[in-house]
Simulated assay, not measured.
Amino acid sequence: MSISEAESVVMEVLWRAAPRTAEDILAEVGPQQGWQEGTVKSLLNRLLKKKAVRAEKDGRRYLYSPRLTRGQYVSQESKGLLDRLFEGRVAPLVAHFSEQHKLSRKDVADLKKLLEELDDEQS
């Protein structure tokens, strides 16, 4: 399932708190995104078709909840990035960030700790 950048903004709202109405979503992200009610409803309809969200009738309105978890989305997106740009390998991704000076000292320390933990698990 491919989720656009605009759709991911709606999903982030739903991951923080659900169920939510289209009006709730509009109130939360509409002003900074420059979106009107029609835009939010269009995005919700696209997400419904993709089965990323579900809708439950509540009187004259619908309550939307995510079907796709944030963890599933992050896994999907990160795998897609690795596959498209780095032949599915993590090491070239980390090398790219280190070459571009995008890794802080804390990032490097965290990576070292993670590698030690992975090494311990495999021993």
Rank of each mutant, 00 (worst) to 15 (best):
A27F: 00
G59I: 03
V74E: 11
E23C: 00
V29L: 11
R84A: 14
L118S: 01
A17F: 08
L26V: 01
V13T: 12
W35P: 03
I3H: 07
A17D: 12
Q122K: 12
K106S: 14
L114P: 00
S4T: 15
L26C: 02
P19H: 06
L26Q: 06
R46S: 15
P19M: 10
H96C: 14
V94A: 14
S2F: 11
T39S: 01
Q100H: 12
R67W: 03
V90S: 09
E37W: 04
M1W: 00
W15H: 08
E37F: 11
S98H: 01
R61G: 10
D107C: 07
V10K: 03
G71K: 15
A6I: 08
V108R: 05
E7P: 05
A55S: 13
S104W: 04
A55Y: 01
Q33N: 12
A22M: 08
K113C: 00
E77V: 14
A27H: 00
A17H: 14
R60L: 10
S75H: 15
N45S: 11
F86C: 06
T21G: 09
R70Q: 14
A18C: 08
A6R: 15
G34T: 02
L85S: 12
L63E: 05
H101A: 13
P92K: 09
G80S: 15
G80H: 14
D107Q: 04
S104Y: 05
M1P: 02
K112M: 13
V108I: 14
L103A: 09
K41W: 01
A52P: 00
L103Y: 04
V10M: 06
E7I: 09
E5P: 00
